[in-house]
Design a protein around this nucleic acid. Structure first.
Lengths: 341, 341
DNA sequence: TTTCAACACGCAAACGTTTTCGGTAGGTGC
DNA sequence: GCACCTACCGAAAACGTTTGCGTGTTGAAA
């Protein structure tokens, strides 16, 4: 077993000083061609690689990005990580991932953990509980320490920082408008409870679309789901007890569950009832019928977030204070769950 | 903006030495009650937290685990990460995630990157390309440096280290046996090319089941997919041109694609043709019909891997050299894509 | 008054780097 | 023979910790 070799060991072996070794390896003109060659050859032979921890300590830069997301077993978040990881890697950064499990406490703990030197900046999406409590002191604290934060998707206006989002309101509006254009009038909404920021925005978009088209908003057609694991029954009731033309669901799971519910009472999709979902994930693509959905490009979102963070990190102390909010465009992916014309 | 406070600053402020501060905070009896109180109060006021990078350098332990997987936008790998993250967190470890994108080079680069001090040990699953090339020098090198590695799912016998896998062969055997028990005789297999270790093992299990039941193995019924993105056509051909009773697919995507192909030529699932998949992911659960599948518990797998790694890390230099391979049990989740009796 | 223990604290090394600032040769110019 | 320059290299500080050991002060015992 050959442990990692350090500058000190090389220096000792070659009977020169540590600084000479360091300079040789960085091709400093201070060192003679001879010694440089000798050192470099030796270093190569023993496969010397500088210790990144030591460098981090010295440079006060870790070249790693901290990610805090509610869940990873969730296609959208996985794509975002993928997007972050790729542009981070291109710029020589690593990513360290922590999960909040939708819990405020875990979010705080993870954040404090990473803030103590392990990373250069954060990319995060708020947990449900945090959005509910509206307690963001852990985030402001980190920002006050001079560590940049980029928020995505689930963001809040209470924090000043860079953000990257989609226009949830507009996207929902356009989806519902699409249903209206196809002649549907009784359009149900399956959404989350209001404190989930994106859920609220999508709900607003739905309402706006109806109002714009002079359709009265029927509260009975709006279902707000608290716990995603036990939504089946509520959705079945919604569909069975109202003569619904179409359903707009604020995520994939609600959409596919709606389709299953419809089938259960022998309604055909899209012949008897149409469904539009949100998030172009695995389910929408592979369920049958495949689901028309609002595509939010997670890769792009993550990539953009990483880019913004890295730019801020490398703009060297120009504490710009001018925060930007980037909006990633969405589009409707038309599939089998809505009529083709 | 209040930057993070260090021992040195506290020492200066309180006009004591750095060591006094450090000892006070760690409640050393060497320091008088008085100063301890004073220091601790001050530290709390300024929210002192030790710099983890400095600690890592000193202790030669980073308390973080490096993960290298082929892809993250893949439900199974996401669940594994989730499993790893949870037990890692319980033990005070963070995880840093890198993706190989199924590329040998990226796997090597990421591995070397992390091996230079950033982490205490690896948990990894081989990229396709690495399995194809059978080049594992980057892994042996890391192990030779004394850094523990735990491999999961896509492993190789060429490396000696801890591993956690499922019994792919047996699981496939049982799945196919289940089909045979239901009276099916013409059972097709949709699998990957052979160099993907798990694909090969599952193929072997399929063949074994057929042979055990004295069914001749028909090469025409075995489809080996090279590129998952363009498998549709091949699968359609397989199903259209052979009078198949049932299909065993080595992953979710092949399974759901098979179902779509069957529907396309008006075969009903499971009335006309049955399908069993592998991996109990989102697709199997939510597609309609939902898919009978071999469940491999990613959470459990990741958790076990993390546990093994941490145990080895904390067993303190007992360079055990006694490597274990843990087998996670699987079971068949019966759903709508196979007849209920 | 001397001695010794106990107590409270500081010094310095160590982890592995990078970099600034000298320092020591040797050679050159006068 | 003296001063100075250049080429080459080493010492040391710095990043933020922890910790073994040394040291100074105090009080009490002899």
């Amino acid at each position: 077993m050959r442990r990692k070799v350090t500058l000190k060991q090389i220096a000792k072996e070659l009977d020169v000083s540590i600084s000479t070794v360091s300079k040789s390896l960085r091709d400093s003109p201070e060192i003679s061609e001879d010694t440089r060659q000798k050192v470099q050859a030796f270093a190569k032979l023993y496969n010397y690689k500088p210790n990144l921890i030591a460098l981090s300590l010295k440079n006060k830069k870790t070249k790693t990005i901290g990610i805090i997301i509610p869940e990873i077993v969730h296609h959208f978040f996985a794509t975002v990580i993928s997007g972050i990881e790729h542009v981070a890697n291109e710029h020589g950064y690593n990513v360290i991932v922590t999960l909040s499990d939708e819990s405020f406490d875990k979010e705080v703990i993870n954040m404090e953990m990473l803030a103590n030197g392990s990373i250069d900046g954060f990319i995060m999406s708020l947990s449900k509980e945090t959005q509910h409590k509206k307690d963001f002191h852990h985030i402001t604290e980190v920002i006050n320490q001079g560590m940049p934060v980029v928020m995505f998707d689930r963001v809040t206006n209470d924090i000043l920082c860079d953000k990257v989002i989609i226009d949830d309101n507009l996207a929902a509006y356009e989806a519902v408008q699409n249903l209206i254009d196809k002649g549907f009038k009784k359009i149900a909404l399956i959404t989350t409870v209001d404190y989930v920021s994106v859920g609220k925005l999508r709900t607003d978009g739905y309402i706006k679309a109806l109002k714009t088209n002079n359709i009265v908003v029927d509260p009975k057609l709006i279902l707000k789901i608290e716990d995603i694991d036990i939504c089946d029954h509520q959705i079945e009731e919604l569909i069975a007890n109202n003569e619904i033309d179409a359903v707009f669901a604020v995520n994939e799971l609600f959409a596919v569950t709606a389709i299953k519910a419809a089938k259960k009472i022998n309604l055909k999709v899209p012949d008897d009832i149409s469904v539009i979902g949100f998030t172009d994930g695995i389910i929408s693509k592979y369920s049958s019928p495949s689901i028309t959905t609002v595509s939010q490009n997670g890769i792009k979102m993550g990539g953009k977030a990483a880019k913004m963070l890295i730019e801020r990190l490398e703009s060297e102390e120009e504490e710009d204070e001018h925060y930007k909010t980037e909006v990633i465009e969405t589009h409707l992916v038309l599939r089998e769950s809505t009529p083709s014309l």
